[in-house]
Design a protein around this nucleic acid. Structure first.
Lengths: 154, 154
DNA sequence: CCAATCGTGGACAACAAATATCCGCGATAG
DNA sequence: CTATCGCGGATATTTGTTGTCCACGATTGG
């Protein structure tokens, strides 16, 4: 089980964009250079975030990205789901219905206890990520770092 | 982000083994056939669980597997970590220290807020999985299924 | 209107991880 | 001593992640 690095990239970029003035956009190559990331691949994640409404993309000369809504209304979970997709990490294969011990389908109306347990854990994980917003991430930046990055994106 | 199917296999097998009389072992091919799983690959996961102490393996004729300790003292998290390993799902790449916006190492003593958020969510996930034991999974089996499987492994 | 800029999205390649199989080894019961 | 059964290393196969490239559309400024 592994979380793609695109999540980290997306969260750092969103945090940086949150420091820009409201209508200011930041070019993709700026974002990539700022964190030393491959621009073409970062583009994929930024596009996914834009499709999810987390970011807003502006085409044409003077184009770039800005946040899709206020930083306080974008949760970390929003970014994670935008980048990773929202398919649940545990996919029940229903092996209780296979093999020599297979159960008849009518005994399998409810999800098995294993499935339920994994789902509950996943919901706990998501709930935890939902409690933190991009605004919170900004607030937790060291003051010096915040000022410095603010200057860069303005 | 995806949880390997070996976790599901391991949990179902552990639940089945919990139904066997205390000193009874179940052969690997029985477990595989019961759930319709590829025996050679299932073996990998069972071995990992045995190494972690979740299962106990008995070699030789009349050999097989039994639980490594009482079902009430094996949590779902134990099985998940035995099968998946315990490397955290989020690996911080410290991109704040790379690129044109790189921060000096002395500004990066503490993990960044993103790292902390992902770690907290991971701990919530683990805590949730720790609240459920193999004994709980057995208790949640429909009565008919429990009796039937008990007969099979005794 | 034209040309340069910039994001979009599809195709594609390289690489890593999960999935799956096989076989020789050691342990052990009978 | 031999047949059984788990162990673990070597090795394919498939899938997913990571990363690149390019033709396209939108937009700005001359």
């Amino acid at each position: 089980m592994k979380i793609s690095q695109g999540v980290e990239w997306g969260l750092h970029c969103a945090t940086l964009l949150a420091l820009a003035p409201p209508d200011r956009v930041v070019r993709r190559d700026r974002l990539a250079a700022h964190y030393g990331l491959p621009e073409a691949y970062l583009a994929k994640h930024l596009q996914a975030m834009a499709r999810a409404g987390v970011l807003h993309a502006v085409p044409g000369p003077r184009g770039g990205y800005r946040l899709g809504r206020e930083a306080a209304r974008i949760t970390v979970l929003d970014v994670v789901e935008a980048v990773e997709g929202s398919t649940p990490p545990f996919l029940c294969q229903e092996i209780r219905q296979r093999g020599t011990g297979a159960l008849p389908p009518d005994q399998c109306r409810r999800p098995c206890a294993i499935h339920a347990t994994m789902t509950a854990a996943d919901q706990a994980w998501r709930a935890s990520l939902r409690t933190v917003t991009i605004a919170d991430l900004v607030a937790r930046l060291p003051a010096g770092v915040r000022e410095r990055n603010e200057k860069i994106v303005s």
